Amino acid sequence: MQINQLTRVYRYDGIDLPIPPHLADDPQGLRAYHATLYPAILNAETVDAGVIGTTHVTEYRRAVGTKG
């Protein structure tokens, strides 16, 4: 059995976002932090994209549809 250490990556629109160490274990706080960089993240859906290589990817996906 082999144990691999995964690194967590948050992506928005194809861009890997920074993860401050003090927010690494707080998904709500991290989302608020990322929303200061990209305000559309507040309305985006959080999707677990799975494991790619040695990274666990979580994506913020913009809501698609019509207003109203």
Rank of each mutant, 00 (worst) to 15 (best):
R8C: 03
N4S: 12
H22G: 09
A63K: 10
G53P: 02
L37Q: 10
V51H: 07
L42E: 02
T55G: 13
L30R: 11
T46R: 15
L30C: 08
V9I: 10
H34K: 13
G50D: 12
I52G: 05
I3H: 10
Y12L: 04
I19F: 01
T66Q: 11
Q2E: 12
G29H: 02
A44Y: 10
A40V: 08
D13I: 03
A49C: 06
P20M: 11
T54Q: 12
V47A: 09
I41C: 08
D25W: 05
V47W: 03
L23W: 00
T7W: 02
T66F: 07
I19A: 00
P20S: 11
T66N: 10
L17H: 05
P20C: 11
P20R: 09
Y12I: 01
P27S: 03
I41M: 09
L17Q: 06
H34P: 00
V51C: 09
T58L: 15
G14I: 04
P21A: 13
E45K: 12
V51W: 01
P39I: 05
L23S: 12
N43K: 08
V64L: 14
A24L: 08
G68V: 02
P20I: 08
L6Y: 03
H22R: 13
R8F: 00
Q28I: 09
G50S: 14
Y33E: 15
P39V: 07
G50R: 14
D13C: 02
G14K: 10
T46W: 06
D26H: 08
L37K: 08
Y33L: 15
L6T: 00
H34W: 07
I15T: 12
H56D: 13
A35E: 02
